[in-house]
Design a protein around this nucleic acid. Sequence first.
DNA 1: CCTTAATAGATAAACTTATATCTATAAAAT
DNA 2: ATTTTATAGATATAAGTTTATCTATTAAGG
Lengths: 223, 223
Amino acid sequence: MKNDPAENQESIKAIPEPTLRRLPIYYQLLKSRLNAGSSEISCTTIADALHLTAIQVRKDLEITEASGKPKVGYNIKELIAAIENFLGWNSKSEAFLVGAGNLGSALIGYQGFKEYGLMIIAAFDNNPAKINTSVYGKRIFDIKKLSDMVRRMKVSIGILTVPAQYAQESANLMTEAGIRAIWNFSPTKIICRPDIVVQHENLACSLAVLSKKISEVAARRIS
Amino acid sequence: MKNDPAENQESIKAIPEPTLRRLPIYYQLLKSRLNAGSSEISCTTIADALHLTAIQVRKDLEITEASGKPKVGYNIKELIAAIENFLGWNSKSEAFLVGAGNLGSALIGYQGFKEYGLMIIAAFDNNPAKINTSVYGKRIFDIKKLSDMVRRMKVSIGILTVPAQYAQESANLMTEAGIRAIWNFSPTKIICRPDIVVQHENLACSLAVLSKKISEVAARRIS
DNA sequence: CCTTAATAGATAAACTTATATCTATAAAAT
DNA sequence: ATTTTATAGATATAAGTTTATCTATTAAGG
Ligand SMILES: NC(=O)c1ccc[n+]([C@@H]2O[C@H](COP(=O)([O-])OP(=O)(O)OC[C@H]3O[C@@H](n4cnc5c(N)ncnc54)[C@H](O)[C@@H]3O)[C@@H](O)[C@H]2O)c1
Ligand SMILES: NC(=O)c1ccc[n+]([C@@H]2O[C@H](COP(=O)([O-])OP(=O)(O)OC[C@H]3O[C@@H](n4cnc5c(N)ncnc54)[C@H](O)[C@@H]3O)[C@@H](O)[C@H]2O)c1
């Protein structure tokens, strides 16, 4: 029911999310190897460097439709291009940020997103003290202007960095304005229409994993 | 081989990571419902609020050994306590942060980690301009002092926010100093000894998922 | 040129996680 | 008191993901 075969006429085989999450890790390694002067790399080499299995690396790369040669491996440049193409990182996408606070400012100033084609072009806030100021050369606008500007500039990605209690209302505002994808950094789950893409970046979730691993390791050390 | 039954004598049934990652989401909801005056909550209610299935919620909560009553559900306070206890969030843990830059400063200033028992007590950097200054009341020390201070203060958690190319060497420094768990925010995978807990917080991985979802939705809209 | 070895690609099995079904229980309604 | 109903808890099934095995290919070595 979830993956209705009728829905995907042209063999859009559902992409495993774990695979998707590993692609940027390969991507980063490939770029650093390319900088180091290599031109080819095998699954075995990638797997060894990242402490994964060669089989998994091969299966992951398969979905990008990159193709390698036996005894040699993949051409690094080609593989980088294949990943970029697969993830849509070879085309620029513009984003608005809502909540120009502590974390929001760090994200605005971060140059690393460019590498993945993501450009934060402006920020919005409801704090009069912040409105019409700039952070790292990016203007902070009144949140009331969001709707107009989304429509006018056709921005489809929103980065949400407001306090948890305002996250849902801000998300609603964004989607009503025409934002189609939200990257949410607040520690609360936001619920949006099914046609809206929502990616939750909840640090508390990671911390839970970290905390539990720590207590497990501690328990193992005692026994 | 991975889950050797001989290793876990006392029925340490491996905890699914997806479950672990959902617990903080329940936790946040429970706290907000408690503040709103509720005292009991059922799986069905939780599931509806978070767009999950009641079965999944019930299975997740099961591992915290919380127990509910038919027709009523769980006592919210008890459930919160059960989650805190399960994740070890009821005891304080101290952390050092390495790389007091843009993102590092945001994390240092973030008050939200307290709720999960995590306290960033000091930061370290190798930039002379930053050493011996303070950020949000937290002192930034010379990275050379890390080893000494880890030993002296018995800090076991390290938060890593240096640029990618220095991530591995910083991680090595941290583990050699005695740090036992690393929360890595750089977009590169770090490899540590097996007894070191490493949690990767790679935004590029999330962005990959977001990017792909966007292109999928776009494709669906056309067809 | 032939053999060897490393590797990509394809297929199959094992494992993990999510979903569905069934049963027992306790609160509320009759 | 009895019936109904919503729910927790237990068990079973299905789906998704990882790991293993097999086959084909191609570069390198003899
Ligand atoms: N700072 C961190 O390191 C960190 C870490 C993890 C999670 N987070 C989460 O990220 C979010 C932001 O954290 P922060 O530390 O930057 O907080 P912050 O208070 O520094 O920033 C929040 C900003 O949002 C603005 N804001 C509030 N309500 C708004 C609204 N309705 N519309 C528009 N703007 C609004 C505020 O004016 C402020 O500038 C929070 O949800 C927090 O839990 C932050
Ligand atoms: N800023 C963001 O929003 C953001 C987003 C995603 C990922 N990241 C990642 O987080 C990391 C930090 O990003 P940032 O924007 O804060 O960068 P930054 O340059 O502002 O901060 C890095 C800090 O690390 C210090 N440093 C460098 N090498 C060091 C070493 N060997 N030992 C100790 N300190 C050292 C620098 O002096 C600097 O203060 C990077 O890996 C970046 O890719 C940042």
